[in-house]
Design a protein around this nucleic acid. Structure first.
Lengths: 195, 195, 195, 195
DNA sequence: AATGAATGAGCCTTCATTCAT
DNA sequence: AATGAATGAAGGCTCATTCAT
């Protein structure tokens, strides 16, 4: 009698293993064997569940985006003012869970890989649009429309830029400084161009 | 008298080919044959001049950084005020030459690879320090020290972030919007916290 | 239940193929593909089981030495006098199994390669020490200590020298003449310097 | 006005470089560039003078054999008795010049290579015949014909065997011990089977 | 459900060799 | 006489992927 119901467990284990493998290697240049090994299964099983490496990578990115979306939704739900909404989005992106070395490495790697994979590019666009919408859900009430748009873009760019810089140049990511910088930007922007 | 003097030409051609190959592929996952082919030579010749793939990649990055440093120096030389110095640095990073698809792809790829290659990491640090210094050479006269430092970091992060976003999500990089966003940041920052 | 238990079979087949390939080529300058082909598998599988070429070569030498040691032990076990012990050691080295063209070629090749590979050198030293010990286990009872030592060295050198000469210069190895020569040496030595 | 008369100098330098390169590497697995570099010329020049690598190797071996033959002739010329002739042959083979690490490595390497190259095999046969003749020129007067033949073979085998053993297993070749061993063999043989 | 076995394809790298100058 | 330039060929090795069990 074969064990049943293993599929979701294995899929999840393989996705987690993919993230940690990417984190350890620092790039998507990770072998299926490495991933499978970290998940404690054979590489054949990884193929069994995901078909091909690309699909595993896509599933992994989808997982990361889903987690981020979930966290964002929760944080936004707890926000009681437009300003708090923006702060919440920022906070989520630099939470311990999201701003970890492995996740950051995965982000970067996916950004690079997106140039080759239309599917990954599509996923990144979805994420970008969602981030933009989340930010606008707060900024729209605080700034005139064009200013709000630009601020949303700036914040998004700052987040990405800080990810890169913190992760690759300083070794240990420092979330507090990053958040402080974003808060400062937001404050300056609001005090100058507020409605 | 043997045919001589090919070396610098070939090295340059191979470095250019590396950039364009990375631009085309979108990652450092480029074969020596691909690079050599674009340079119009055999892969054996690439090895002859650079020894190993890693060294070619490093030489390529060194070339990109050197070009950027040269452009920055020239732009800073023409600037006649602190504010113009900052604008000059921004302008250089989004000039047609630097903000091209291939070069951006190379940047990203190098960022990722830097996690594995200490030498590339070292080069990126040099670049980061130089960018910071260039920005501070203007900002220091415009803002109090801690504010200037933070502004320099924000601008650097914005540059990197905009590189990523423009390059990977929108397809065609739009330098003007990016520059406008940075100018806006600078103006807001200066009008609020100026000395 | 996966197909299993192939590993020892393949390893053995690859080692045998290595010996025969070296025998055919006459040197260690054998490609992995050649070896794998003789074993009826892909070169990738050879790497799968042995990691790198060097390890396969070392495993092959270890195998040859182990076989020789086994044969020697058996022959010595059947010897009932000191003199017979010495004759047994000689007989083993020129038995059909050991004195075959392929094995001799492998020996020579390993001798040469030993200059570059510390591991192979170590293995050869082990073999030399064992041969010396085996010879001394007989000679010690027949000759005064220093004479016995020298005789052991001479016999070892004669064996190696005859291997080279028979294998490389005459084409077909002639074990009988070689053995006769060694017997003659032993007889002369014993009749002169016996206790 | 091109320099003339360089050919013999270059050829000799390249042959010397070949020997030292083989000595350093420990095998014939030496690149043309390595050899040319040691000779202080370009690899293209080595091809210019020798055509192909094989021919350079053959020329090198011919050189070694010629030197050995020359030394042997000189030593034999100074010998005033049959016994001294045999001792002279032995002495030459273990002279500092012949028994050096590089030359020994070359010998071994050539032995191995001879299995593949008919020309090298031919050269080795010439050497073997000459050695045999030289030894017989002394032994024939000291022992009955069949005994003399066998003694000559034994001495030749001992020389080769000692070359291998001294060179590859002990690190530093010890000529004295080797000579002593051969002298002992000769003395025992003569005292037993003398006419 | 899970895996050991096996391979084809591809990449980096080395090297002997050629050629124009 | 001599060499820098250049390449084709080949080898070791890796890895995603398939398959039988």
């Amino acid at each position: 009698m074969p064990k049943t119901g293993m599929e979701p467990l294995r899929r999840r284990a393989l996705i987690d293993a993919t993230i940690s493998a990417i984190g350890a290697r620092g790039s998507l240049d990770v072998t299926m064997s490495e991933i499978a090994g970290r998940a404690g299964v054979s590489s054949a099983l990884a193929h069994h569940y995901f078909g091909a490496k690309d699909e595993l990578l896509q599933a992994t990115m989808r997982h990361i985006l889903a987690e981020l979306a979930l966290d964002a939704r929760a944080a936004l739900g707890a926000a009681s003012s437009p300003r708090e909404r923006v702060l919440a989005v920022i906070a989520v992106n630099f939470s311990d869970k999201q701003f970890s070395a492995a996740t950051i490495a995965a982000w970067l790697a996916f950004y690079v890989e997106a140039q080759r994979s239309p599917e990954l590019r599509r996923l990144l666009r979805v994420y970008a649009r969602r981030l933009h919408a989340n930010l606008m859900s707060g900024l729209a009430a605080l700034l005139p429309r064009p200013d709000a748009e630009q601020a949303a873009e700036a914040i998004a760019a700052l987040i990405d830029g800080l990810y890169i810089r913190r992760a690759l140049m300083d070794g240990v990511p420092d979330a507090d400084t990053a958040i402080a910088l974003l808060h400062d930007y937001l404050n300056t922007k609001l005090s100058t161009g507020s409605r």
